[in-house]
Design a protein around this nucleic acid. Structure first.
Length: 426
RNA sequence: GUGGGUGUAGCUCAGCUGGCAGAGCACUAGGUUGUGGUCCUGGGUGUCGCGGGUUCGAACCCCGUCACUCACCCCA
């Protein structure tokens, strides 16, 4: 038996890095005024088909869609934005306060062929802002991403930004693009030609060198922006510049979900092979209305959690394993029983304590204490119990002291807590 | 969906022209009564991914299949 293709276990040995990221995310996002939202993993298929777009790759061939016993078409969420928008509308969040800043962390599902940095169940860290049309919301999110990556010690990332315009400026751009493509038709690959009527915007994203060459001078959305979109994009850029954030205006950045408008961006890395996008986001001013809510501007991003972890592992940002404060060695049945109670009391007091109940030899237990990186070892054998005392060994200094039984637990708590403080002050 | 690479011990991998299944690490037990990391000695570990075929004989050659992996595509 094993996990199904593209699915995987995240094992205890790997979890510390995930927890570290989760901690940073919650403190940082909460500081920026975001509130966590938890949404279902299953939604009606219609939700994704309508929001992401019927002719996108995600909807056409990557979704886990099936019928339940009643015959309803259900889909494992391939992304978070659509369900969060659904929730925003369903609970009429716009009525009590249209401005909402929401975030979530959780698994998404896409049935693609797995490869480096791409899994069928993968995790996203997602943030959305509803009800703010201002370009400051756009720069705030990019700033937030940058700050998170900075706190996690990541370098070598670059922000690529573009503006995709709005329903106002789209038509003139699309006409210009189609005219241009028509003139280069013989130099484009099959895929590009297929996209011509499906979704011409996507042609700009083709990675085949010949196509890239042919499309080098293709019209770009940012050259056809209407007055408002142009001002919006300018504000985003100047704000980021004033904050000292580096970014690259990338005319060819076109995101694969149909709901995006205006600002779109990706945070890219060069260290994950073909998977360059660690995070991506954009504005989607039409989506809330499209899904049945009131006209509401909105913007959001998603971070590829798995990819983020892989980048961190590559630059060795793995947090150290926590040490064990105390390992209790008990020799003999009476000592074992006492040790069990000490151990529980110490755990209650927040001291990381472990003991081994298998009745192993002294040497084996010392080895285990060493393996667990124990700071102290408490040795309780028949000899000590006769004297109503036990031995405490400091594993770093190798010094051993005798401790009286009556005050043992409080004394141990004191010693271990002092030791923890020393470690932290170093 | 398409193509390339790889499947041998818990992990990393050797295994020659087809001839008894291997190493290091890890694990475990000892090295005079009850003291870790280093060192020494011993110990266990296998559906050689799976199923066929060729052969006296297959981890090795052939066919199929599955899994992993990388790339295309797409995206986080």
């Amino acid at each position: 038996m094993q996990t199904i293709r593209g699915f995987r276990d995240i094992l205890p040995e790997q979890i510390s890095i995930w927890q570290k990221v989760e901690k940073e995310v919650t403190t940082l996002f909460e500081a920026f005024g975001f509130k966590e939202i938890r949404i279902p993993i299953l939604e009606k298929n219609r939700l994704f088909a309508r929001s992401i777009g019927e002719v996108t790759d995600i909807v056409e061939k990557e979704m886990y869609t099936f019928e339940d016993r009643k015959g309803d078409k259900l889909t494992l969420r391939p992304e978070a934005t659509a369900p969060i928008v659904r929730s925003y509308i369903q609970h009429k969040m716009y009525a009590s306060d249209p401005v909402r800043k929401l975030y979530m962390i959780g698994p998404m599902f896409r049935r693609e062929r797995p490869q480096k940095g791409r899994y069928r169940q993968f995790y996203q860290i997602d943030a959305e802002i509803f009800g703010v049309e201002s370009a400051y919301a756009d720069s705030e999110l990019i700033f937030l991403l940058n700050e998170l990556f900075k706190r996690l010690g990541l370098t070598g990332l670059s922000a690529h930004i573009n503006s995709l315009g709005c329903p106002e400026c789209r038509p003139s751009f699309q006409n210009a693009l189609l005219d241009f493509i028509e003139s280069k038709k013989d130099r484009l690959c099959e895929n590009c030609l297929r996209r011509m009527d499906k979704n011409p915007l996507r042609i700009l994203d083709c990675k085949i060198p010949d196509c890239k060459k042919a499309l080098a001078n293709a019209p770009a959305t940012i050259d056809y922006l209407c007055h408002d979109c142009s001002n919006h994009f300018d504000t985003v850029k100047t704000t980021l510049e004033k904050q000292g954030l580096d970014f690259i205006v990338d005319k060819s950045l076109v995101r694969g979900l149909d709901y995006y408008t205006r600002t779109a961006w990706e945070i890219q890395t060069t260290t994950l092979g073909a998977q360059s996008a660690v995070a991506g986001g954009g504005r989607y001013d039409g989506l809330v209305q499209e899904l049945g809510g009131p006209q509401t501007p909105a913007i959001g991003f998603a971070i590829g959690f798995d990819r983020l972890v892989e980048v961190m592992e590559q630059i060795d940002k793995i947090p150290e394993e926590p040490t064990l404060d105390l390992f209790i060695i008990c020799l003999g049945d009476t000592a074992m029983e006492k040790g069990y109670h000490w151990s529980c009391e110490l755990n209650q007091a927040g001291i990381r304590t472990e003991m081994d109940f298998r009745g192993k030899s002294m040497k084996a237990l010392m080895k285990r204490a060493d393996k667990l990186n124990a700071q102290h070892v408490l040795i309780a054998g028949e000899n000590e119990l006769i004297k109503n005392a036990v031995v405490l060994r400091n594993m770093n200094t190798k010094k051993q002291v005798s401790l009286a039984l009556e005050t043992l637990v409080p004394e141990l708590i004191k010693i271990c807590k002092n030791n923890i403080e020393e470690i932290h002050s170093d």
